[in-house]
Design a protein around this nucleic acid. Structure first.
Length: 493
RNA sequence: GGUCUCGUGGCCGAGUGGCUAGGCAGAGCUCUGCAAAAGCUUGUACAGCGGUUCGAAUCCGCUCGAGACCUCCA
């Protein structure tokens, strides 16, 4: 594809991307609720959007990427009566709600940095936008799309549905929703079980509260995204993203709020990333079926046989398309580790290529690069991009034997392009960059001494000594690779 | 129960009417004192059963299986 195409969940179609404003992209992504550590499933979503962000930049767009932090409004159960997640956690840990939010916000940012995700342009926080949320509620009350009940305010789905179709994003019918809704307590203030809270009156014990025209209370969860996306991106912007689990009810409610507030649905393209599963089941905090990013990096999990670095993990994630369910397993990670190592060393090989061969080689680098773009233009098909990168790695190997394949210009161009795809678009860093400078240098010095001693033994054909050194080093985590003339080593763990 | 999605070789995972995806593992080869590493070569798979078609993994129907959402969740 010559032009970027994106799958839009609202129309269920792959559509050519046309920015609302030429050369610019406005993208809003639902960020984490900071009451707990983010798990690898959360990371997948944010890395998928990081890839999207990076590819827009690659295409030359000026991107305003807004990703919020949810620190209020998330109730523990569906009754709109439960305790807020942040305040529940605060009680459990005997600290201020703000401390909980702050702690896990910092944790989240650390994880994102570890995985080399670019920071968003703006990272707004829900509690910093209470006023904006109240303003939207006022407007919805004016237009009769909301009603007050005992100090709380609810969105009126019945009223909204007279002129709009609630459920269009998730493909649901109002009747099915009503039939499927649970008839539980705590709904007594609502006219219909489908109505959702815009403002909740706080009970006496509730610690997080703000004053409003209706009561001392707190905003409903869905409202913050409408308020913040409107504030930073306007009534209409290009992309609204989030995990597929947010499609209903969160994004459905957002659309309803947006339409009630401004007459516009918000985003032109709705993008939903699929789930990361563990043992075939989705990861979720509440079920305990989770893997934490740090557990992978430290190798500290019953699901793993060893540790994997953030590059490997990121490579693994991008080896699946963002709309597919991706199943996590130790074996799959191991495969990604080897694969990325292979790709990475091919690029190293290309960088150290001697300036030999004809000016122009037989391999068409421009055409190849076009294929890479074409893959990404097809709804960010990163696995296909990676397949092309492996094709290039093969070409690099062939060119070592026959420099007429790439030629001088081809080698230079391919090096530049691969660098862009691997580092700038896929967001991976070099394998060899790991380990800090002074230790690495000291180890190399020590290894040279070992190599000398071993070379001596080998020249005497004292295989017992040379093999013993090799075996012992392997057990110590250093693997020796004997080449024809000289030896090399890699650190295995 | 309702709505929806998916089922690709040992594993992960693209493709989606006719053309080798790719990676890992396995096998063979090259290199090598041996090993390892690395490189090269190699696999004709699309849940099952029907149908449409000159032709289907790709479209339609049914069956079986898995998952998601319907309640907080990326």
């Amino acid at each position: 594809m010559n032009k970027l195409h994106i799958y839009d969940s609202l129309s269920s179609k792959i559509k050519p991307f046309e920015p609302l404003e030429k050369g610019k992209v406005g993208m809003y992504v639902c960020g984490p609720t900071v009451y707990n550590d983010v798990h690898l499933g959360n990371v997948r979503t944010f890395l998928s959007f990081d890839l999207i962000f990076r590819y827009f930049k690659y295409l030359g767009y000026k991107v305003k990427y807004v990703r919020n932090i949810t620190d209020v409004g998330h109730l523990v159960n569906d009754l709109d009566e439960g305790e807020d997640k942040i305040s529940a956690k605060a009680k459990a840990e005997s600290i201020e709600p703000m401390e909980v939010a702050h702690k896990y916000t910092l944790g989240f940012r650390n994880v994102m940095r570890e995985f080399n995700a670019l920071p968003p342009s703006i990272e707004p926080i829900a509690t910093g936008h209470i006023i904006e949320q109240i303003e939207i509620i006022k407007k919805l009350l004016e237009t009769k799309l909301a009603y007050e009940s005992n100090g709380s305010v609810y969105f009126d789905i019945t009223e909204y549905s007279k002129e709009n179709s609630y459920g269009e994003l998730s493909g649901r019918e109002i009747e099915d929703l009503i039939n499927g809704s649970r008839d539980l307590d705590g709904q007594k203030d609502k006219k219909s079980p489908l109505d959702f809270a815009l403002w909740k009156k706080a009970s006496k014990s509730h610690i997080m509260r703000w004053s409003s025209p209706w009561s001392d209370g707190f905003p409903g969860w869905h409202l913050e995204c409408s308020a913040m996306s409107e504030k930073y991106l306007g009534n209409e912007f290009d992309i609204h993203g989030g995990g597929i689990d947010l499609k209903f009810p969160h994004h459905e409610c957002e659309i309803a709020q947006n339409v009630g507030n401004s007459g516009k649905k918000g985003a032109k393209y709705w993008v939903h990333t699929n789930m990361l599963t563990l043992n075939g089941k989705r990861m979720s905090k509440s079920s305990g079926n989770v893997l934490l990013p740090m557990e992978i990096i430290k190798g500290d999990s019953k699901h793993l046989t060893k540790s994997y670095d953030s590059n490997t993990t990121r490579f693994f994630i991008h080896q699946a398309q963002y709309r597919s369910i991706l199943d996590f397993s130790d074996e799959a990670l191991k495969a990604s580790e080897k694969g990325y190592k292979k790709l990475s060393s091919a690029l190293e090989l290309l960088k150290s290529r001697k300036n030999i061969g004809p000016e122009n080689g037989s391999f068409d680098v421009k055409k190849w690069n076009h294929s890479c773009e074409s893959a990404m233009n097809n709804d960010f098909n990163s696995p296909q991009l990676i397949a092309y990168l492996f094709e290039a790695s093969k070409v690099i190997q062939q060119d070592i034997k026959d420099p007429s394949i790439l030629g001088k210009n081809g080698a230079e161009l391919l090096s530049e392009k691969m660098n862009i795809w691997i580092h700038e678009v896929l967001g991976l860093t070099d394998f060899k960059d790991q380990g800090s400078g002074i230790y690495k240098k000291a180890l190399e010095g020590a290894m040279n001494i070992v190599f000398d001693a071993r070379k001596n033994a080998r020249e005497r054909k004292d295989w017992e000594t040379s093999d013993s050194i090799r075996d012992k080093l392997l057990r110590a985590g250093i693997q020796i690779n004997d080449g024809t003339n000289e030896s090399d080593f890699t650190v295995t763990q």
